[in-house]
Amino acid sequence: MSAPENKRRAFLAAVGAVAVAPGISLIAPSQAGTAASSAVRFGMLVDTTKCSPGCDACVKACAAENGLVEPIADLRQGSQWIRKIDLVDTATGRQHSLPMMCQHCAKPPCVDVCPTGASFKRADGIVLVDRHICIGCRYCMMACPYKARSFVHQPLTTQNPEVPRGLGCVEACTFCVQRTDRGLAPACADACPQGAMLFGDLNDPQSAIAKRLKEVATTQVRADLKLGTGVRYQGI
């Protein structure tokens, strides 16, 4: 583990929860040996009115944090845990841009269809793939309405130590679980120059995200499916 990270961890242990950037509140880091709590429901609010079309700081931060750096000839076979989508309303011509990733559904279709139970939802609502028992059938990729999952099409050697990932398994955004467990927000939220991605505990009425969600109009993508997404958008 690198020295700055050690420092950060010590800092967090001492302080508990602090705000390191406007709009991003830290959550209490999990203590050694304590499990993720079902009292917590992690979520994210994306303010698309602040999101600029040309910017992909979140995507780059995700790639660096999670080691998504392997080159691939056909981009359609490469992993993208988060991507920027540019939208144009066909009726009105209004344009905007937003980041799209795993929506961490309350009722995730990927978890329902997974034959082995490799796709699962943690107590705190984070949807993950257990690569130890993923057989690579890709049924979850057929089932995800957000195209949020990628299949690792080639052998990897450049994984980051805290983010194991490998050939033949399906993967997706983890809300940077290695960071959230330490009390940090996901890398994308930290990196957004506009502070457009607000991460926190939806269940805690005192959290910044819960307060904002109470004030502003937000939407879930494909709300018609009633999946109870953990990610919400403002200004779609």
Partner: peptide, 22 residues
């Protein structure tokens, strides 16, 4: 065709009742 065809045993020993594949 599975990504991890070597995990046939996993497919046989882990069962998710909500999965049609299961």
């Amino acid at each position: 065709d599975l990504g991890r065809a070597d995990r046939l045993v996993v497919a046989m020993t882990h069962f998710n009742p909500t999965s049609v594949f299961g």
